[in-house]
């Protein structure tokens, strides 16, 4: 099945990004496709490579970037939400790209299911 994933909350403050990550990983391990992960609202903050959590904690941006590399995933960070929050091409980690909100509509059309995490 083709999944789209939508993340609305930022890293650490909420569990949403972690839940979405575990869901995406489980879906990929089952052989499903994840067409796109769309980062919206505070979810755009998951993309910044400037985050520096303590060494014994997970690094949310890096774990997303590693999953992207492993499965060649498509990560889109909403440009309008990103601009509001100081996220741009200079700060996003590997595997993320900034794109329009229309790319959420596209995945809603193309995917069998879009699963929303957060709000």
């Amino acid at each position: 099945m083709k999944f789209g994933i939508l993340i609305l909350e930022g890293p650490y403050q909420h569990e949403s990004s972690d839940s979405a990550y575990h869901f995406a990983k489980a879906a990929l391990e089952k052989g499903h496709e994840v067409l796109r992960v769309f980062f919206y609202q505070d979810g755009v903050l998951n993309s910044t490579k400037l985050m520096e959590p303590q060494a014994d904690d997970r690094h949310i941006q890096r774990q997303w970037s590693e999953l992207q590399e492993q499965y060649d995933l498509d990560y889109v960070v909403c440009v309008a939400a990103a601009k509001r929050r100081g996220i741009n091409d200079d700060v996003i980690g590997p595997g993320f790209k900034i794109g329009g909100l229309g790319m959420l509509t596209e995945v809603a059309i193309e995917a069998d299911r879009v699963v929303q995490f957060g709000a």
């Binding site: 575990h22 391990e29 699963v115 957060g118």
Partner: peptide, 18 residues
């Protein structure tokens, strides 16, 4: 578990309430 979560979403349309 998460793999079951994926199966349920495969079988059903899904809405998120917070």
């Amino acid at each position: 578990t998460y793999p079951d979560f994926v199966d349920l979403v495969e079988q059903n349309k899904v809405a998120s309430w917070s």
